[in-house]
Amino acid sequence: MKESRHTRQGFWAAALIFALFSLPVMAGAPVPDIPEAVKGDQCVEETGFMRKNHMELLLHQRDETMHRGIRTKKHSLKNCFTCHVVKDAGGQPVTVKSPKHFCRECHDYAAVQIDCFQCHTSVPGGHKTTGEKL
């Protein structure tokens, strides 16, 4: 009886040790690889705020610009791309068609549709093509 209890304890100890050691072996959780901004060390608002509320800023900006005719630079979509660009192998900024695009890195991860680029350009400076549909 005493021996069997020892065996059981041994089993659980072995299982625990195995579980602990197997943890680091497991693959890391998939997390988005958020690209660094190409210049500047501070976004137009604080980073934590931007991660939560960038969509509100963009929508507000749209209302101000479209409905009231007040066109400012700070919170404009165009201004995002002055810093948040990802370059391809040839050194050209990637469009939203690429999964590496700054917006798509997180939007794909969170399964959130972006409605901006059906009309707007997704690269700095803009280019002539329109309708960069996802």
Binding site: R51, K52, Y109, A110
Partner: peptide, 8 residues
């Protein structure tokens, strides 16, 4: 809002 990317 919360940071849903961090949440995920």
């Amino acid at each position: 809002h919360t940071d849903i990317v961090s949440l995920k």
